[in-house]
Nucleic acid binder design. Structure first.
Lengths: 225, 225
DNA sequence: ACCTGAACACCGTTCAAGT
DNA sequence: ACCTGAACACCGTTCAAGT
């Protein structure tokens, strides 16, 4: 029972609008997504878009939901019934989120703007279910879950910021070298720690670093008995 | 040796502009800060502001820096030479950041937009110095520090989002009751965990929750030997 | 039911002109 | 050196008018 308008391949639809929005966001970042640019890409008027989505906030929310849903499907499928424990499942889900935001930095900023979206809820549940399977006492579930999702979504926002700050052409390691260089030049009397870890900042990998944080939280959860 | 223009109490200055911006941000949120509103409050033209600050991004950065500097001064002074260990110092600094963002929610969103500001650097150093004092092996310093600051600034962004989502009049517990009510009505087959923790979500305190996450990370750091 | 595109009410930012 | 405020080039959103 397809709707009449579905016959025209180029008919406007919420789905096509969201896909076009994602393409614009991926190509030019959040600043590039305007209703005029979107209308031009879809060869229609800007007002037409408003027939399918309420406003720009809803459009960004739908685009985020789309990306997260896809990322979660990939992560969860890699964690199926293959006997991987809940600890490993949490790591895989977290990395799935990290990679999704790495590929679509604008998604990261969106979480600290409109949480409680459907896809976010599924990530919450996926983490929560594994926390429960971790074997910690029931009274510790909520805190353990909260620490993990706060870290995962919080890091997402910061990675998005890093990506946005970076000059389009340059790669991450050049940007890190710049920042580390700045740290190395700080006054040693005021900033002994940052000076000391500057070389590690320059050499570190964001993804490994993110995972190390997950592991520290998991280790902390493991101490709760 | 005061500058000539300092004689007029109402002379425009970067400092007065930043203070007015903070007042507008606190009163009406990020959406309320426009150059027109700021110019009106300072009884000047919008172009005058551009003589003192480069653009809106710089203005928001300066406002954030101002708030964080003040918060850090308060937190650090409460942690002086009174024998409190590094563990407790980390908790106090983290809570200082939490409270600052609780009072100025717009600050939270700013971190995931322009990190590496002077005040942020001081928070980084303050946490890092205490990590070093924690007694973990030197090879673990960088990961431990990174997990803590990612969590602290990440939670900041999410708290800011929560504050922004909330209807101006209502209080946090009413908003939490709403969300928890939604969780309690989810399909138990798909969302067993969220259904189960819904009552805890309704009853929890954001600040305690935040601190519990810090403690879990600290516990995880404690396992590294 | 869905699309068009001009119009409206805003923005941030610039800049000639003032003092 | 600093301030003014009109002007410019944008936005998101609306809505009468079309099909």
């Amino acid at each position: 029972m397809t709707k009449r308008t579905d016959r025209r391949a180029d008919a406007l639809s919420r789905e096509r609008i969201v896909e076009a929005a994602i393409a614009i966001l991926d190509a030019g970042g959040e600043g590039a997504l305007t209703f005029r640019a979107l209308a031009a890409r879809l060869a229609t008027g800007s007002g037409a878009i408003y027939w399918h989505v309420a406003d720009k906030e809803a459009l960004l929310a739908a685009a985020t939901d789309h990306v997260v849903t896809r990322a979660m499907a990939g992560a969860i499928s890699g964690v199926g019934a293959d006997g991987a424990g809940p600890r490993q499942a949490i790591r895989v889900i977290a990395l799935g989120m990290f990679d999704a935001i790495d590929a679509h930095p604008w998604v990261g900023a969106q979480f600290s703007r409109a949480p409680w979206q459907p896809a976010t809820l599924r990530v919450f549940e996926a983490i929560g279910g594994r926390v429960r399977a971790l074997g910690v006492p029931e009274g510790a579930w909520f805190n353990a879950w909260s620490a993990l999702v706060t870290y995962i979504f919080g890091a997402a926002g910061q990675n998005a910021a890093n990506a946005r700050l970076q000059a389009p052409g340059t790669d991450r390691s050049a940007a890190l070298a710049d920042i580390a260089g700045g740290w190395a030049r700080l006054d040693p009397a005021d900033y002994p720690f940052l000076r000391q870890v500057a070389p590690q900042l320059a050499a570190h990998d964001d993804r490994d670093q993110f995972l190390a944080g997950i592991d520290l939280i998991l280790a902390g959860i493991g101490t709760v008995r």
